[in-house]
């Protein structure tokens, strides 16, 4: 436990520094990048006085350092400012949209781990036979196809040619929104509203698979490699002599020593998955922070972009922290502080 506490303390300190760095970089980049939020808000015929008044209202007439100071002080108080394009509180917008993305990304990660783990184990069980070449071939294809190509292929096949799944949104709009939280799937399951949960899942299938397949491919590759290395270790030989079946050797003996390296890499790849939500949510009109990020950038909605980037940064940090803690929990040598 002391090891875990030490890891936590160190990581929280680092997280604060990292987030501050993210805040500075994004703030500066947005001010340097071309595009004027006021020009986006106001009609072409606006007078110079109107423009100046708007600039003053959003504090855009102040020096950069002052602008940054005002924004940072607000963030520390929990005030992320007001969205320029949507005219709503940024924190409120984020708290509405983030749960949708969290449900999507978590489901995708779970599918990727389950699918990738199963394929890697199956591939290890048939190693040295023709079936292994088939597993490697399919996995090579999965590695080569990015998430948005999967998304478009699913739209074409499951949405258009053989329309079995809903193409867009988070749930059937005719149902209304009978929820108190924004975690629709979790809440509908907890309250036993399984018809609604089923509708939400149907909307999630395509975006989840599009996000999960590339990650699953990476997991297969790393885990299968780690498994076949573990299968050559002496302790597997000893267990084989004990008369254990091949599947018990792979799952009971080799797997626990092979997940370590896989977990570390899955953590890194999971952050790519979160990045992938931006384009995949857009394709499926899924109302998460990814889809919102694109609109925010198009509209030069500076406060919203800043808030979104901070949330993405915090997510990356949390995922990496969870991966590191998981590695400590899984490896007895690390756990005892060796």
């Amino acid at each position: 436990m002391r090891v875990i506490a030490a890891v936590l303390a160190k990581r929280i300190g680092m997280a604060i520094v990292t987030l501050f760095g993210v805040a500075v970089v994004v703030f500066l980049l947005l001010r340097v990048a071309p595009g004027d939020p006021v020009a986006m808000m106001i009609g072409a015929g606006a007078s110079a006085a109107d423009v100046a008044e708007l600039r003053a209202r959003y504090g855009l007439d102040q020096p950069l350092l002052v602008q940054f100071g005002i924004w940072l002080a607000g963030v520390l108080r929990g005030d992320f400012g007001v969205s320029i394009s949507l005219h709503r509180d940024v924190l409120e917008l984020l708290s509405e949209r983030l749960p949708a993305t969290l449900e999507l990304a978590t489901a995708a990660c779970a599918v990727a781990v389950g699918l990738g783990g199963a394929i890697a184990i199956a591939g290890t069980l048939v190693r040295g036979r023709k079936a292994e070449a088939a597993v490697d071939g399919v996995n090579g294809l999965m590695l080569a196809v990015p998430d948005f190509v999967w998304a478009l292929a699913f739209v074409l096949v499951l949405g258009v040619l053989w329309p079995v799944l809903p193409l867009s949104g988070r749930m059937d709009p005719s149902v209304g929104v009978p929820f108190v939280s924004h975690f629709y799937l979790i809440e509908s399951l907890l309250r036993g509203r399984f018809a609604i949960a089923g509708d939400i899942v149907a909307h999630m299938v395509m975006p989840v698979l599009a996000l999960a397949l590339p990650l699953a491919a990476v997991i297969v590759r790393i885990l299968k490699e780690a498994l076949s290395e573990a299968m050559m270790q002496d302790y597997v030989l000893v267990a084989r002599v004990k008369g254990f079946s091949e599947s018990r050797l792979v799952i009971g003996e080799a797997l626990r020593n092979a997940v370590g390296p896989t977990l570390a890499l899955t953590g890194v790849q999971f952050t790519f998955l979160i990045g992938g939500t931006v384009i995949v949510e857009r394709i499926f009109a899924y109302p998460g922070i990814g889809a919102m990020a694109i609109d925010a950038v198009i509209n030069r909605d500076l406060p919203l972009i800043q808030g979104l980037v901070l949330v993405f940064g915090a997510l990356f940090i949390l995922v990496n922290l969870a991966v590191d803690l998981g590695a400590v929990a899984l490896n007895p040598r690390l756990r005892h502080g060796g």
């Binding site: 270790q233 002496d234 302790y235 030989l237 000893v238 267990a239 002599v241 004990k242 003996e253 626990r256 020593n257 899984l330 490896n331 007895p332 040598r333």
Partner: peptide
């Protein structure tokens, strides 16, 4: 049963 050569690698570390 088998008594293996290298006791350092013959037990599952996990």
């Amino acid at each position: 049963s088998l008594i293996p050569q290298d006791p350092l690698t013959a037990l599952n570390p996990g």
